[in-house]
Simulated scan of single mutants.
Amino acid sequence: MTHTSRGPGRAWIITPGLHTDRFVSAQNSGAAVAVVDIEDSVALADKQTARTSSEIFFAVDEPPCTLGIRMNSLTTLDGLKDLVALAAYTTRPDLIVVPKVESPRDIELVAAALDADGYTPDIWALVESPRAFDHLPQIMRAPRLGGVIFGSADYAAAVRCGLGWDALRYARSALINAATAADIPAIDAPTWEIDDPDTLRRDAERAKELGFYGKGCVHPRHVEMINDVFTPTAEEVAQARTIMAAADASGGTVTTVNGQMRGTPFFNAARALIAEADRTA
């Protein structure tokens, strides 16, 4: 049995594969995508246990959201073991998050190992190393790539920079540019401060402003705010409709809306926002 992917969502929650007691709360947190992790949150000695226990994460008759797994890197023995195990799961993930991606070959290998009759999971790349950023255009051209996720902690550790917004602005901007050029969505890294809603909101607003499709999180408490920030507000939708009305009135030529010049790029952005609002209404 396999579940059909619902596509990318705004809030993504990740939960450790060893903590089966947290599975249901993650799945029902309101996130559009719930990912069970058997990579960084699991010690080397516990990998096999997590690999086995994570199978029940997908044994849900009516999953409330898209269910995924973050496997281990394909440059490790555990990554290869993960592929063998995932291929044998009775109920398989909607979505595979591949960490430490530095080549389109990583995506191709996962597809080759897991694709089967009636089962082609979404495959997402976790981009989290300087080498990956050197090869972004090639990675983005992998035919089975569904989207990319920014891995801020690993990237900052590799570069030996801070985790603050300014230190990681280049990486985020480069990822957004490459993803947009390839017409695939990008998801921002989680905010690591668990109990700081002000920082979470500021980070989510910045990620949205930069062009990210959504944002990851590591605690169910973060889901509601991420959804709130990334959902177009009534004011934003009203402004977009005003711009489109002005576009119609001007015959699509440059015009003025509330004292601001508006032309084709603004019309396109307004049209896209209205379409999204109508789709999620």
Results as ranks from 00 to 15, higher is better:
residue 187 I to F: 06
residue 188 D to P: 00
residue 188 D to Y: 07
residue 188 D to L: 02
residue 189 A to L: 01
residue 189 A to I: 01
residue 190 P to H: 09
residue 190 P to Y: 09
residue 190 P to F: 02
residue 190 P to M: 03
residue 190 P to V: 00
residue 190 P to T: 01
residue 190 P to E: 04
residue 190 P to Q: 03
residue 190 P to W: 06
residue 191 T to A: 06
residue 191 T to L: 07
residue 191 T to V: 08
residue 192 W to Y: 12
residue 192 W to D: 09
residue 193 E to P: 00
residue 193 E to A: 14
residue 193 E to L: 14
residue 194 I to M: 10
residue 194 I to E: 06
residue 194 I to C: 04
residue 194 I to R: 12
residue 195 D to Y: 08
residue 195 D to G: 04
residue 196 D to C: 02
residue 197 P to M: 13
residue 197 P to N: 11
residue 197 P to F: 13
residue 197 P to K: 12
residue 197 P to G: 12
residue 198 D to K: 15
residue 198 D to H: 15
residue 198 D to T: 15
residue 198 D to F: 14
residue 199 T to S: 09
residue 199 T to I: 13
residue 200 L to S: 03
residue 200 L to K: 02
residue 201 R to K: 00
residue 202 R to V: 04
residue 202 R to H: 02
residue 202 R to A: 11
residue 202 R to Y: 10
residue 202 R to F: 07
residue 202 R to W: 07
residue 202 R to L: 08
residue 202 R to D: 04
residue 204 A to C: 09
residue 204 A to D: 14
residue 204 A to W: 11
residue 204 A to R: 13
residue 204 A to F: 09
residue 204 A to I: 07
residue 205 E to P: 04
residue 205 E to F: 06
residue 205 E to L: 04
residue 205 E to Q: 12
residue 206 R to Q: 14
residue 206 R to V: 06
residue 206 R to S: 06
residue 206 R to A: 11
residue 206 R to T: 05
residue 207 A to R: 10
residue 207 A to Q: 07
residue 207 A to I: 05
residue 207 A to F: 04
residue 208 K to R: 15
residue 208 K to W: 13
residue 208 K to Y: 12
residue 208 K to G: 14
residue 208 K to I: 14
residue 209 E to T: 10
residue 209 E to Q: 14
residue 209 E to P: 12
residue 209 E to I: 11
residue 209 E to S: 13
residue 210 L to N: 01
residue 210 L to Q: 01
residue 210 L to R: 00
residue 210 L to Y: 00
residue 211 G to A: 09
residue 211 G to I: 10
residue 211 G to L: 10
residue 212 F to C: 05
residue 212 F to A: 05
residue 213 Y to A: 06
residue 213 Y to S: 10
residue 213 Y to Q: 09
residue 213 Y to P: 05
residue 213 Y to V: 06
residue 214 G to N: 15
residue 214 G to L: 15
residue 214 G to C: 15
residue 215 K to G: 10
residue 215 K to W: 10
residue 215 K to H: 11
residue 216 G to P: 05
residue 216 G to I: 01
residue 216 G to K: 09
residue 216 G to D: 11
residue 217 C to A: 11
residue 217 C to Y: 08
residue 217 C to Q: 12
residue 217 C to F: 13
residue 218 V to D: 01
residue 218 V to F: 06
residue 218 V to L: 08
residue 218 V to H: 04
residue 219 H to F: 02
residue 219 H to W: 09
residue 219 H to K: 07
residue 219 H to E: 07
residue 220 P to I: 02
residue 221 R to N: 15
residue 222 H to L: 07
residue 222 H to E: 11
residue 223 V to D: 13
residue 223 V to R: 13
residue 223 V to L: 15
